[in-house]
Design a protein around this nucleic acid. Structure first.
Length: 306
DNA sequence: ACTCCCCCCTGTTAGC
DNA sequence: TGCTAACAGGGGGGAG
């Protein structure tokens, strides 16, 4: 649910409100929230007590907080995870899974997660002497995201075109490019005028450049708007919604006019979810443009635009 | 080595 | 009104 702009907004909130503070107590209310931590709920809580948040880092949709030069708290928000900072005596909502209080007696930090797809875990991390950036071992398979220095556009283009899949599946594959989810995949494809089912191995270099440009634009613009909130499930650490939903051109706009050509946006079933696109601006393949019929069968897919 | 699909959850909403 | 099914921003693990 939260994609790069939402997760980055949360990271910045933790950096501002939590970094530099020392944990007084850690409580795990739902063991599922720490299911990937080998120490279990009690071990996790004990290991976090007395530790200090030193910095707040992110790659794609993963967050981690250095506790010293050898360990970090790794977090993923899943579909509905939130980090909320607030008055420690406010009522505990039913979806709070983990709670941290701090030795300064100030605002506490609550990991709240309705659907429990998110998780927290204490992980080893080997920071070099100069404390330069490193990524925790459990997420080494996550590719750099398009807003970080380590992202290599040429390498991404080459790997993308080598894939035998559809372009939207590739955009959602966090081991190829990270940080993009269903909303921003649809938005980037709309901006780049590419159909979601386009076979990656038919993409021309110029189309890949256009796509990457669109990805960077939409992620940056959404970040400036504080992310996209359709409902109360995404909010920043202060409980405030983002307002990028007002700027969406495709996602969630079935039947509404395309901002470029006024053709109604369509919704297709895709990977047990939805794909929104403009049937006129985003043709299945360049060949379709010259054909009298709407579109030839999608190569290698077996998936027809229903 | 890839690619794809199911499944993990809870809550809301559309449809009968 | 009330039940049921579909759907929701993600990703790991295993099947093929």
């Amino acid at each position: 649910m939260p994609e790069l702009p939402e997760v980055e907004t949360v990271r910045a909130g933790i950096e501002q409100h939590v970094v530099g503070r020392t944990i007084a107590t850690a409580e795990v209310f739902n063991p599922r929230a720490v299911r990937r931590d080998v120490a279990g709920p009690a071990g996790f809580a004990a290991a976090l007590t007395g530790r200090t948040f030193l910095r707040a880092e992110r790659r794609g949709k993963y967050l981690w907080f250095a506790l010293d030069d050898t360990e970090a708290l790794l977090a993923h928000l899943g579909m509905s995870g939130q980090f909320l900072v607030g008055d420690p005596v406010r009522p505990l909502s039913p979806h709070v899974r983990v709670r941290f209080t701090f030795t300064d007696g100030g605002p506490d930090l609550r990991f709240t997660d309705q659907r429990t797809f998110g998780h927290l875990m204490l992980v080893p991390i080997a920071y070099p002497a100069d404390m330069s950036r490193v990524v925790p071992e459990p997420i080494v398979h996550i590719a750099p995201d398009p807003l970080e220095d380590a992202f290599d556009a040429k390498d991404f283009a080459a790997r993308l075109r080598r894939r035998k899949t559809q372009v939207k599946r590739a955009l959602l594959d966090q081991s190829l490019i990270s940080g993009i989810g269903n909303i921003y995949a649809d938005e980037a494809l709309w901006r780049a005028r590419l159909h979601w089912a386009r076979p990656t191995d038919t993409l021309r270099p110029a189309e890949v450049s256009r796509l990457l440009e669109a990805v960077r634009e939409v992620l940056s613009e959404a970040l400036k708007a504080g992310g996209t909130s359709f409902d109360a499930l995404y909010v920043n650490v202060n409980g405030e919604s983002g307002y990028f939903d007002r700027s969406l051109n495709a996602y969630g706009r079935e039947g509404e006019p395309c901002g470029r050509c006024a053709t109604p946006i369509r919704r297709d079933a895709f990977m047990n979810r939805s794909s929104y696109s403009c049937p006129k601006c985003q043709r299945p393949s360049p060949v379709a443009r010259s054909a009298a019929t709407p579109a030839p069968a999608v190569a290698g897919g077996g998936r027809q635009p229903a």
